[in-house]
Design a protein around this nucleic acid. Structure first.
Length: 571
RNA sequence: CGGGGUGUAGCUCAGCCUGGUAGAGCACCACGUUCGGGACGUGGGGGUCGUGAGUUCGAAUCUCGCCACCCCGACCA
C-alpha cells in the first residue's frame, strides 16, 4: 500500500476529548473519528487492525467447528417480551419504532433472536450440540460512554451461542470454548488472564472473563501468587484470616464526636487508626425476615462487596441500602453514628471484623462513638461472613498463597446460561426418549473493537502505538529518504516495494515525499512493527537501514537479497 | 439520573469580565528555498462565533430557553 493513496489521517495535536492513551492514539494515528457520543467511524487504517483481530477470532472459531451466521441488528420487541427483557434490560436498550409504530430494538445482544432461530430449525437431539456465532455491530446505550471505542455505544462484537440436550454437553462445549478463547487471545499477542466471574442475575453456574492486562483497565482482578486461582475482584472469595481474637487492652468508653460523620473524619479528627474502625451499613432484610433491616460490619478502610452481601440469605435481593430516614426510624441515629453495640438489628460481621479488638464504632447516638470496643465483653460476637472486596495480601480462597491485584480490560466473557432463555422461549427438542427436552444454552462474547483499544493500552510509548505483530495494520513500513531528488533512492524503493508485495508482505510504502522527520513520526505513531529506510548513504554501501518499532537502535540489512532478509525479521 | 464544565476556522485555543470591522499557532492551497527525526519565506483560501429568543443604535461578548459534547458521581455510614 502506498501512503500517498492510502491517506494517513494522523494529527499532531491530541484532541481535547480523549483521556486515556488508547483513545488519544487512535485519534492521533487516524484509526477512528468520532461521529457523536460513543459512536465512531473506523478509517481505512483502523479497519485494517479491526479486521486482523476479527480474522483471528473467526479462524479459531471455524477451526473449532462453530458455524458463522449473521443475524439482524434490528429485532422485534415481541421476542424480548417473551424473555421479559424488553423491560428488564433497562435504559441501555435502544428502542426504535417503524412508521407503523411497531416496536423494535437495535440488538445489544442476540440470545432472543438466536433462540428463536434454533427453536424453529432444530427438532432433534441428534442435531445437537450445535454452536453458532456472528461478528456484528451491537448497540448499547451506555449510561456514560467513554474512552473512545473502549466503552462505546456502538461496537463490534463476536457473540456465540451453543445449544445442548443436557448440562453435561453444555459443560463440555463450555470448556472447549474456554480453550478456543485462550488460543484466540494468545494469537493476538496480548498479555491476558482468564478469571472466574460473576454469573450474575442470569443464573447458570459457570462464567469466566478474559482480561487484557493493562494498568488503565477498568476492572480489578485478583489472583493467587502461588496457584492458578484468578478471579474478578468483585467475586474473589477471601479465605478466613488466621489468628485468634486478641485480648482487650482498652476500656470501653463513649466519646463525643460532633465532627465525625464518616470514617475519614473519625480517623483525621480523633486520632483513631483506620484499621481500628468498624463501619456499619444498614441494608434491607430479605422478605419474610423477622427484622426489617440487617446491619453489615466491615473494617473502616474496606469496601462492602455487594455481590457477596446479596448472597446472604438474610439480605434482600437486590441489595438495597436503607435510606437515612429508615435508619433514623430503626436505630434512632444518623448513618454516620452507627455501630453494633446495643444495636437491636441482626448483625453480620465480615470475617476480618470478627478478629478485631479495641476498635472504634458509632454509638447509635448522633455525635457519639464508642472507642475501645471488644467482642464478647462489650457486645456479643455476631454472625460472621465474607462480605468485603478482596485486597492485596488477603488469603487466596484455595488456601494457596496470598491474593494479588491487577488491572484488566474485559475483552471476553463465556457463560453457561442453562435453560434461562430456552425455557421462557420454549426452545425444545425431542430426546432419545421421545420426549421434549428444554435445550441447555451457553453464550460466549468477545469485544472485537475493544480488543483494539486494549491492545494499545498494553502496547504504547511516548512516540505512539507499538502493535503486536499479529494485529498490526501493516507488518512493515518502507521509507525512502529524499526520493524526490534522488532517482536512485526512488528506483530502489519502488523496486523493493514491488518485491515485498510479490513476497506477500503487508508493506506501507511512504511515497509522500515528505521530510524524513515527518515520516518517522507518523510511522512510529501508527505503530508499524518493522521499518526499513532507504537512503543515498545506504545505497552507496549496499545496505538498508532496519529498525523494529520497540527498539531505538538501527540495524542494517543487505540491499542484495533484501526481501529474504526482511522476511526473516517478520513473524 | 445528579453535579460541574465547554461550545469561536479542519485541530488546539485566545477574544467574552468592561458590547463597537472576528484572531493566533498548527493544518490546507500556490510559488521559491530546504530535505536522515514534525523546515523556512512570501502570498492565499477558510468561521451567519452551537441554536432560538430577548436587551441594545449595535451582541461572539449581557439575559433566558434549548441542543450538543466532555468530566465527576451514582460503595455511603
Amino acid at each position: 500500500m502506498k501512503a500517498s493513496t492510502f491517506h494517513l489521517f494522523t494529527t499532531r495535536e491530541t484532541p481535547a476529548e480523549a483521556e486515556i492513551a488508547s483513545h488519544q492514539l487512535m485519534l492521533r494515528s487516524g484509526m477512528i473519528r468520532k461521529l457523536t457520543s460513543g459512536i465512531y467511524t473506523w478509517t481505512p487504517m483502523g479497519l485494517r487492525v479491526l479486521r486482523k483481530v476479527e480474522a483471528i477470532v473467526r479462524d479459531e472459531l471455524d477451526k473449532a467447528g462453530y458455524l458463522e451466521m449473521l443475524m439482524p441488528a434490528v429485532q422485534p420487541a415481541e421476542l424480548w417480551e417473551e424473555t421479559g427483557r424488553w423491560e428488564k434490560f433497562g435504559a441501555q436498550l435502544l428502542k426504535i419504532q417503524d412508521r407503523a409504530g411497531r416496536h423494535y430494538c437495535f440488538g445489544p445482544t442476540h440470545e432472543e433472536v438466536m433462540t428463536d432461530f434454533v427453536r424453529n430449525e432444530i427438532r432433534s437431539y441428534k442435531q445437537l450440540p450445535i454452536t453458532f456465532y456472528q461478528i456484528q455491530t451491537k448497540f448499547r446505550d451506555e449510561i456514560r460512554p467513554r474512552f473512545g471505542v473502549m466503552r462505546a455505544r456502538e461496537f463490534l462484537m463476536k457473540d456465540a451461542y451453543s445449544f445442548h440436550i443436557d448440562h453435561a454437553s453444555l459443560d463440555e462445549t463450555y470448556w472447549e470454548m474456554y480453550q478456543v478463547y485462550s488460543r484466540i487471545f494468545t494469537r493476538t499477542g496480548l498479555k491476558f488472564r482468564s478469571v472466574e466471574a460473576d454469573s450474575g442475575a442470569i443464573g447458570g453456574n459457570q462464567s469466566h472473563e478474559f482480561h487484557v492486562l493493562a494498568d488503565s483497565g477498568e476492572d480489578s482482578i485478583a489472583f493467587s501468587d502461588q496457584s492458578d486461582y484468578a478471579s474478578n475482584v468483585e467475586l474473589a472469595a477471601i479465605a478466613a484470616p488466621t489468628g485468634e481474637l486478641a485480648a482487650a487492652t482498652e476500656e470501653l468508653r463513649t466519646v463525643d464526636t460532633p465532627d465525625a460523620h464518616s470514617i475519614d473524619e473519625l480517623v483525621s479528627g480523633y486520632g483513631v487508626a483506620i484499621d481500628k474502625t468498624v463501619k456499619t451499613l444498614i441494608v434491607h432484610a430479605a422478605e419474610g425476615s423477622a427484622a426489617e433491616f440487617v446491619a453489615l460490619l466491615v473494617r473502616g478502610d474496606r469496601v462492602l462487596n455487594e455481590i457477596k452481601a446479596e448472597r446472604l440469605e438474610q439480605v434482600a435481593t437486590p441489595l438495597t441500602f436503607a435510606s437515612d430516614e429508615e435508619i433514623h426510624n430503626a436505630v434512632g441515629a444518623s448513618p454516620g453514628s452507627l455501630g453494633p453495640v446495643g444495636l437491636t438489628l441482626p448483625v453480620i460481621a465480615d470475617q476480618e471484623v470478627a478478629l478485631m479488638s479495641d476498635f472504634a464504632t458509632g454509638a447509635n447516638s448522633d455525635n457519639q462513638h464508642y472507642f475501645g470496643v471488644n467482642w464478647l465483653r462489650d457486645v456479643e460476637l455476631p454472625e460472621i461472613a465474607d462480605i468485603r472486596n478482596a485486597v492485596e495480601g488477603d488469603n487466596s480462597p484455595d488456601g494457596k498463597g496470598k491474593l494479588q491485584l491487577a488491572r484488566g480490560i474485559e475483552v471476553g466473557h463465556i457463560f453457561q446460561l442453562g435453560t434461562a432463555y430456552s425455557e421462557s422461549m420454549n426452545a425444545v427438542v425431542l430426546g432419545e426418549d421421545g420426549k421434549s427436552h428444554v435445550m441447555h444454552m451457553g453464550c460466549y462474547g468477545i469485544g472485537v473493537s475493544r480488543i483494539v483499544a486494549a491492545a494499545i493500552e498494553q502496547n504504547h510509548d511516548d512516540r505512539g502505538i507499538s502493535w503486536p505483530e499479529p494485529i498490526a495494520p501493516f507488518q512493515l513500513a518502507l521509507l525512502p529518504m529524499n526520493a524526490k531528488k534522488s532517482h536512485r533512492v526512488r528506483e530502489a524503493a519502488d523496486q523493493l516495494y514491488a518485491d515485498l508485495l510479490e513476497a506477500g508482505v503487508e508493506v506501507l510504502y511512504d511515497d509522500r515525499n515528505l521530510r524524513p522527520g515527518v515520516m518517522f513520526n507518523d510511522i512510529e505513531l501508527i505503530g508499524i512493527p518493522h521499518r526499513v529506510v532507504i537512503g543515498e548513504r545506504g545505497l552507496d554501501s549496499g545496505v538498508l537501514e532496519y529498525r523494529q518499532r520497540n527498539n531505538t537502535e538501527n540495524g542494517e540489512l543487505p540491499l542484495e537479497g533484501a526481501v529474504a532478509a526482511i522476511l526473516e525479521k517478520l513473524l
